[in-house]
Design a protein around this nucleic acid. Sequence first.
DNA 1: TATCCTTGATAAT
DNA 2: CCAGGCATTATCAAGGATA
Length: 359
Amino acid sequence: MQGIVALLDLDYFYAQCEMLRNPSLKGKPVAIVIKTVRENSGVIATSNYEARKLKIRSGMPILLAKKLSNEETIFIEADKPYYKEISEKVFEIVSMFCEKIEQVSIDEAYLDLANEKGFDGAEEKAKKIKEFLKGELGLTCSIGISVNKFLSKMASDENKPNGLTIIKQNEIDSFISNKKSSELPGLGPKASKLLHEKGVETISDLKTLSEMELVQLFGSAKGKQYYNFSRGIDERELKENREKKQISRMITLKKDTLNSEEILPSIKFLSEIVFKEIKKMQKSFKTTSLIIITNKFETLTKSHTSQTIVSTLDELNSITENLLKEFLSEAITPVRRIGVRVSSFEENYGYQKKLFDFK
DNA sequence: TATCCTTGATAAT
DNA sequence: CCAGGCATTATCAAGGATA
């Protein structure tokens, strides 16, 4: 008896949320943008299918998207808190149908759909979930069902939007072998280019590379994963409460600069946000990093790990200030964007949990 | 030798 | 696919530091 895993993916999520509160957007191309303080600067976060027809895609600079747009196209600034609210409602409903859920992002989750009636039972459940999300919230999603995480993810991508795709054991090979290797989850443009140079186009091409070759090309974790994925294998378990290992916030500066006076206010602003966030999570942290993106778009980081947890905002401020000094003493290229990240989390003791627990 | 830390690379949206 | 010029968040891996 093997498991049955589903991947639920909310369709063009941010755009769909906006269409929900403003139905007059229906049928029009909609692009959700993340703007910066600078004129005309920013990128597309999500676009609906009408906008995708115009080749407006996520990650694309706003200016380019505007060139591709037509008179009908609507650009809306991202409203994360609103999307988060809807996301919470979604997964509340999903949890009425499925006990074991691993949420991977604001709009995606793996569901354990193992049951007595096999794939038929899972399909039935998925249909119910889709029905309820549509009925209760007016949202559509795409669901993929298969024997492991990776295949369910591939399946969910197969029929979008509003899809339901099932890959049973005996269909695995025919489903994946003709797919492009770049369609594998976690295999992005860089890896794709490398594979292309090796003459690898499809997943069956990928199968001709040995595990050793792949590890040499991509490192042990990625290499082994690609090796297994190309054979339909994925041993990753479904993890119910996946805990964040870091949180970071970034912003674009008003102008490129190497002047500490011009950078510090932004850092303080970010530190405060991050500090609030981490408190809300009831976590403590030891490592603080400053992330710098230059006007040449290189990313540089400076980190500092404290001996004990950082417990006040003042402490955090002084650490980031020092990191900035350190960076500016060696910097040559002006800074465009700046970010603050905290990591090396520890539980906030005193609240919950004892240090030792007997099994 | 094993683990931690820093930093850069990569991916997804 | 590639190039060009563009935001944010997160994870992973390599190699150095440290004990």
